[in-house]
Design a protein around this nucleic acid. Structure first.
Length: 922
RNA sequence: GCCCGAAUGGUGGAAUGGUAGACACGAGGGACUUAAAAUCCCUUGGCUAUUGCGGCUGUGCGGGUUCGAGUCCCGCUUCGGGCACCA
């Protein structure tokens, strides 16, 4: 009998003893790197949805290995993070302790499923030997700037040299703001001034930036950690605040991050998400002089063609221009408006879509027709994008339109036939009108041409320049928290300095409490002697969660190297990840930061591939399937699903583990909670049927299914097969334990092919033609399916094949052993067991993947569907090598044809060899 | 608002432009059994017919291309995902 417990335990031990999954560099073999997104070990442990991607990657890894590849398939833990720290604050338990406990629990759960990870390569981001390299990379970013001409990172020392010789003249560097100084001025600066100047260029820099401040978490957050004004972790409100923080100049890499997308094999939707996030837009920066003033407004627009329709200008409330242009008469009104805006959180500003604004009293001069246009302040203009000032064209921008209507500002249509009496015309098509002056004439042009013509002319006139803007912001890299990598930074007379490589790793210090200090400093402010040997204070912030996950795939290549993040040899052999599997939730976070980090290391010459993840698959989420019971109001009586409409009922979530096929186990229900102990039921057909709904898998819905329970009951192989059988890998789907019996039955049937009772029934009989056909059909199908990640159809193919071989009473060792090799990636334990049972004494993991011999698939006869006008009416059998003419003749001569042709004329006959004969009749 | 993706039985889902519904669950019927479980066999999109074994219809809706469309094109509807006062 098939006994999953004994089998799975035996072979898991065997693989461990034999170090079956240990992998080393082997220049004789082609490499293949399969990676899962490493998990954050949460206190709740794994539920049945987590292993979905791991099973998929495990299958692919095993498949590649059977095909002769040297497969790197590692696993580790993203161990720094907020939940462990929040827990520490509540309980006083050190986050390291909870984290280690959680990791051990995860490991136990993972081990039961039989993955082929090389655990010798395990990494944890909170391990000093790991985070030393996170800190190391940070110091390299600090010591680099981004050369915009070369589009790559260069040593900051080169920039310093340039400053010494030429000042800022001719510098091509990504910077926070354009600076102008001469070589003499540079040399005259003191250390502090030089440091401040260089901060403007460093890739890792300290900057005064608007950050997302989450008061409840006591820390700043990156843009991808905030959604709709709330923190992703915890859902606490987030406000904008100007703070002096460490940042990474990710924006400098925007173009390369965009271009790189064309070179990698990711889904279109994910690439699109990244393109949206990077948000490239081509336009022009234009200068508008302010009347009776020496101020010039610089604005960004993608619609240079609409410059004749500008009827007002708008400044963001935070814009530096606000103070510069506001007239004394308007000063008070403007100040009040700016203050009112500041008091609102980002979320309030987003929710409150009421049009608001205030006139500054100043006027700008349209550089193309000399008209004076009023300058307003409004919070619909964002300070962080472009220059924080816009030219408003109400006729062709819906936001400007709403503003103009509200304040009664003029609207000038610029496109022929556009009706702007009710709403703006935002489309970029049509013929341009009302756009002529002495300097420029766009009338009659198509919008697309007009944009180009306007841009050209603006540059010629020196009133602006063509500019590409990106939405992608620099990453805020400081967190005012404890449980993260400490910055290898100390402050000498207020000047930030990097620690020497020899001082790394800088260990996370112990603190008495995981809370901010009384003076409001981050928790590291509590650490005793948080100073360098020389007595300089060390940075108090720690790095964010994405720091440790940005280059972890590199560390797996060479995890115990104490000299380098990764050796040249290991990097050149393993190169980059061939297949990366994980969820879409990292699309704008981890997957951007990793690509950025890798590109930076590429510029440094540390890694040889510019893109870290060649192919990426997003496994879908497994949702929960909740069950409900229906309590009749104000009673303790529960009515079955089919009868509930006859009563006034309240649906109540019920633990899915006491429900089977939607039928409630009444005794278990009574025992579940004390208030149900004396529950009464109204049954249908003697059963209590529960309702169901698809919801997120969570404790509060009582729909969490634990993989351990499934493994205990059905075995890991059943769990693996069933998770794959559930549906297409990339699709989200609810977990429904109901179907699992079918897969379990399949394994039992498979077992029955090899054993009758305790006796092996495998023989050395020569396989029959039928046996070989069934087998090779499967080889072909499974090989193609694995390559396409179509695992659900693979599992179905196994079921068909085993049924066929059972019917054929196949006992051929040759056929049955090849069947096991095909099955090994999916159900490794049972495959290994039977593999040894039929006489092999080495692991099935080192077997050779079979190749399909098409000769076995050839049929003697082929079934043709004969159709009339495309509708199939009858079938005919023909020899496999029958030609088109034969098929046509046979179809028309068949007695069935006469019936259908009665009273009709044949117009045409179409023959698709081996498939169909379509007779077109009139 | 913009950009992606999806829609097929009671359910999860199969179908290189060529006989829609593979495979599985569930349901119904039967065999074995004292009984239950397990196992095995049959039926299972709908309507209709059924001692003439077939007929009609059918892949969200409306058009189109094609000898032939679940699949390709155009226009909708609904649902899911991403981005969003990004000028």
């Amino acid at each position: 009998m098939y006994n999953h417990k004994a089998i799975e335990q035996r072979w898991q031990q065997y693989w461990k003893d034999q170090r079956t999954y240990h992998v080393d560099i082997d220049p004789q073999k082609p490499k293949f790197y399969v990676l899962d997104m490493f998990p954050y070990p949460s206190g709740a442990g794994l539920h049945v949805g987590h292993p979905l991607g791991y099973i998929a990657s495990d299958i692919y890894s095993r498949y590649k290995r059977l095909n002769g590849f040297n497969v790197l398939h590692p696993m580790g833990y993203d161990a720094y993070g907020l939940p462990a720290e929040q827990y520490a604050i509540q309980t006083g338990q050190h986050p390291e302790k909870t984290t280690v406990n959680n990791i051990n629990r995860y490991r136990e759960q993972l081990d039961k499923i039989g993955f082929c990870y090389d655990w010798d390569r395990e990494i944890r981001t909170c391990d000093p030997e790991y985070y030393r390299w996170t800190q190391w990379a940070f110091t390299r970013m600090f010591n680099s700037y981004f050369d915009t001409a070369k589009q790559k990172a260069e040593p900051i020392a080169d920039l310093v040299k340039h400053f010494e010789e030429h000042g800022s003249q001719g510098v091509t560097a990504a910077c926070s703001k354009e600076l102008h100084f001469t070589a003499d001025e540079w040399r005259a600066m003191d250390d502090k001034q030089k440091s401040d100047t260089l901060m403007n260029y460093r890739i890792a820099y300290l900057g005064n930036t608007m950050v997302n401040w989450c008061a409840k978490l006591g820390t700043v957050l990156a843009n991808d950690e905030v959604s709709e004004g709330l923190s992703i972790r915890g859902g606490y409100p987030v406000e904008q605040k100007l703070m002096y923080q460490w940042c990474l100049r990710v924006s400098a890499y925007a173009q390369r991050l965009l271009d790189g997308l064309d070179t990698i094999d990711w889904t279109d939707s994910l690439k699109e998400t990244q393109r949206n996030w990077i948000g490239r837009s081509e336009g022009a920066e234009m200068l508008f002089k302010v009347a009776d003033s020496d101020v010039t407004l610089e604005i960004f627009t993608t619609r240079a063609d609409t410059v004749f329709g500008v009827t007002f200008m708008v400044l963001a409330p935070e814009s530096k221009y606000v103070d510069m242009v506001t007239t004394p008469e308007q000063r008070q009104a403007v100040d009040e408006y700016v203050q009112a805006t500041k008091r609102k959180t980002e979320r309030e500003r987003m929710i409150d879509k009421k049009v608001s604004g205030v006139f500054t009293g100043a006027y700008a001069i349209n550089p193309l027709n000399g008209k004076e246009i009023p300058i307003w302040v409004s919070d619909y203009v964002l300070a962080g994008y472009g220059t924080g000032a816009i030219m408003a064209v109400p006729a062709h921008d819906s936001r400007d339109y709403a503003f103009a209507k509200h304040f009664g500002l003029p609207i000038i249509p610029l496109i022929e036939g556009a009706d702007v009496s009710e709403e703006s015309y935002d489309a970029k098509e049509g013929k341009v009108i009302n756009s002529k002056s002495d300097l420029l004439d766009l009338n009659g042009m198509e919008v697309k041409d007009a944009i180009a013509a306007a841009k050209r002319r603006i540059e010629e006139l020196g009133i602006g320049k063509v500019k590409v803007n990106f939405r992608l912001r620099d990453a805020i890299f400081s967190r005012q928290r404890y449980w993260g990598e400490p910055f290898p930074v100390y402050y000498k007379d207020g000047i930030p300095m990097m620690m020497d490589d020899s001082e790394l790793p800088l260990l996370l210090p112990e603190v008495d409490k995981f809370l901010p200090t009384e003076t409001g400093e981050p928790p590291l402010g509590r650490a005793a002697n948080w100073k360098t040997k020389e007595g300089y204070p060390i940075e108090l912030c720690t790095m964010p969660g994405f720091a440790g996950s940005s280059a972890y795939y590199l560390r797996y290549m060479d995890p115990r190297n104490s000299k380098a993040l990764v050796s040249k040899e290991a990097d050149e052999y393993w190169r980059n990840v061939d297949l990366y599997i994980g969820g879409t939730e990292h699309a704008t976070g981890h997957l951007i930061y990793s690509r950025f980090w890798n590109k930076f290391l590429f510029d440094l010459g540390v890694v040889c591939e510019e893109e870290p993840f060649k192919k990426l698959i997003n496994q879908g989420m497994i949702q929960g399937r909740s069950n409900f019971v229906y309590r009749i109001k104000d009673t303790n009586t529960f009515v079955s699903y089919g009868l509930k409409d006859q009563y006034d009922v309240t649906p109540i979530h019920v633990d899915v583990n006491i429900v089977s096929n939607d039928v409630l186990d009444l005794d278990k229900f009574r025992a579940w909670r004390p208030e149900f102990a004396d529950a009464e039921f109204i049954l249908e057909d003697g059963k209590y049927v529960c309702g169901y709904a698809v919801e997120k898998m969570s404790k509060s819905m009582f729909n969490v299914v634990n993989p351990d329970d499934i493994v205990e009951r059905y075995g890991a192989d059943t769990l693996r097969l069933y998770e794959m059988f559930l549906g297409p890998l990339e699709q989200s789907k609810p977990w429904d334990t109901n179907g699992i019996d079918g897969v379990h039955r399949f394994i039992n049937k498979l077992w029955g092919l090899y054993y009758k009772g305790d006796d092996l029934r495998v023989t050395d009989d020569v396989p029959t033609k039928e046996n070989l056909k069934s087998l090779h059909k499967l080889i072909k199908k499974v090989t193609a399916d694995i390559e396409n990640f179509s695992y659900n159809t693979s599992v179905a193919a196994f079921m068909v094949c085993v049924n066929e071989l059972t019917q054929q009473k196949c006992s051929s060792r040759e056929v049955l052993s090849q069947l096991l090799i095909l099955l090994a990636p999916f159900a490794p334990h049972v495959a290994e067991e039977l593999w040894h049972a039929i006489g092999n004494d080495t692991t099935i993991c080192d077997a050779q993947w079979p190749i399909c011999n098409e000769d076995y698939l050839k049929e003697d006869t082929v079934n043709y569907a004969v159709s009339f006008n495309g509708k199939a009416r009858y079938n005919i059998q023909l020899p496999a090598d029958a030609g088109k003419e034969e098929a046509e003749k046979a179809a028309l001569e068949n007695p069935g044809a006469a019936k259908w042709l009665e009273g009709k004329t044949i117009k045409k006959v179409i023959v698709v060899p081996g498939k169909i004969v379509n007779i077109v009749v009139g």
